[in-house]
Design a protein around this nucleic acid. Structure first.
Lengths: 258, 258
DNA sequence: TCAAAAGTGTTTCCAATACACCCATGA
DNA sequence: TCATGGGTGTATTGGAAACACTTTTGA
């Protein structure tokens, strides 16, 4: 097991790592995909190291494929974290767990791996937009769990991962007019309220129902389909889908929602 | 000379570099600070390597201090460039010049430096906002010139520096409502037309004079001072300055200009 | 007195906001 | 028929945009 790890890190660019804030939307809540490390009581973002000769986007793409089963996910690089204070030991992570894991390593592997994990890491962070319903969260070798966690109920996180999530979210908020939010996060067909709740949870702000509906329709990117019978004792809402040609065009120049 | 370089790189994080798109505003044109390399017919962004144990922002700050004489410059990290195709040899740069320089190196230094310059570099890019009138462009040891160049008249640039500038500018445009543009790029006192031309050159778009004036005044961040007698045969414009307390507050939530 | 640019005023139009109203649905 | 939520209508407000008018300055 440590041999596998050793061979991996020897193929990678030293001091460089990657992290990805994978955002999804489920039950009217914005969620982030997290991994629970086996020997720790802390969670972490999916990520990895950068193999020599590979592009960062490519590596993130592979990680996402492994953790969710999805290809061609929408990705955006948002910041590189390089502070000298972002080491493993300064946070909520249990040193104990790591030591236990380390005790299973061979002496030869320890030399390489200790040096690897003690170096200063410069981590480039991406965020991804994903449809929760299409993804199948899958833990990796060092994790016992992979799960969608609401962004407002974050557990203990390793390193500066909590900061990364928070900064990814503010980036999302700032760039909301330029990002294909609805297209990436919702199912192909959705109700107007779905779309409104999505924007509300990103902006962290209530929007007027009537105005939102009219505004969206006026943009000319939504096509109306059959009604959705929910079984509730109220009028059934229409389902809508996004006209991708118009949408992609509008996104470039920026759509104003709010 | 090569000994100095060798000692420098041995103190730095391998494979990591920094670049800074220093933006200024002069004679109604947006300009970027560039260095002309001695042995090359190409220009480059100011930048450097990352010494062990130092923060990126700190290093960029030192570079800016050396190139412009200024402290406490407004800085924003905008992207990390890591492509495997961003090597030195694939661009407009003259290999000849580098070989000439390299021939002056001792054999011992060559071993270290060849390896250093042949490795894959991952470069984190920042942009800075500077008042041209306060800065004194100063070349570094490997450059023969340091100058403000209009962003619309860029010369040959090394590596992917042209792309960096272009992406810094689009970042500036996108984030215009959240950046202290006027505060950082203009003198303490300026005319309304100065401010308007500045926004026009960032947005690459003409704005209506009357509407711009009224909008700016209504924001409540400008205080009017004495008139500026230019000697021209027309009405003298007022000088304005920015009320920093109100400004900083507004910038956080985002000011809409246009 | 004239040209040129600065400052202000005016008009029109559209978007944002805040509601009110009617409609469909299943209990 | 009633409660609930969906879809649309409407009145008000304020800003955006286009342009006209007045003022100031030095030639």
């Amino acid at each position: 097991m440590s041999k596998f790890l050793r061979e991996l890190v020897e193929k990678c660019v030293p001091g460089v790592s990657l992290d990805c804030v994978v955002l999804g939307y489920q039950n009217n809540v914005l969620k982030v995909l997290l991994l629970k490390y086996k020997e720790h009581n802390a969670w972490a973002l999916p990520g990895g190291f950068l193999p020599q000769g590979q592009e960062m986007e490519e590596v993130i793409g592979l990680v996402l494929k492994e953790r969710t089963g999805l290809d061609g996910v929408y990705l955006e690089q948002f910041k590189t974290y390089s502070s000298i204070n972002r080491g493993w030991n300064c946070n909520e992570i249990s040193q104990e767990g790591f030591n236990k894991l380390r005790s299973t390593w061979s002496t030869a592997d320890r030399t390489v791996l200790d040096q690897w994990f003690n170096q200063r890491f410069i981590s480039t962070a991406y965020f991804a937009l994903i449809n929760c319903n299409k993804a199948e969260p899958t833990p990796d070798a060092v994790s016992e769990e992979c799960a969608w966690v609401p962004v407002n109920e974050l557990p203990n996180l390793v390193l500066d991962h909590k900061k990364m999530i928070s900064e990814a979210l503010s980036q999302l908020k700032r760039q909301i007019n330029f990002l294909p939010i609805g297209k990436e996060l919702l199912d192909q067909k959705f109700t107007m309220l779905d779309l409104q709740r999505l924007y509300e949870s990103i902006l962290d702000q209530k929007l007027d129902r009537g105005n939102f509906q009219r505004k969206m329709m006026k943009l000319g990117i939504l096509t109306r389909h059959e009604k959705l019978m929910t079984g509730a004792q109220n009028k059934a809402p229409y389902l809508y889908s996004i006209d991708l040609k118009v949408y992609d065009q509008l996104i470039k120049t920026g759509i104003s929602f709010v």
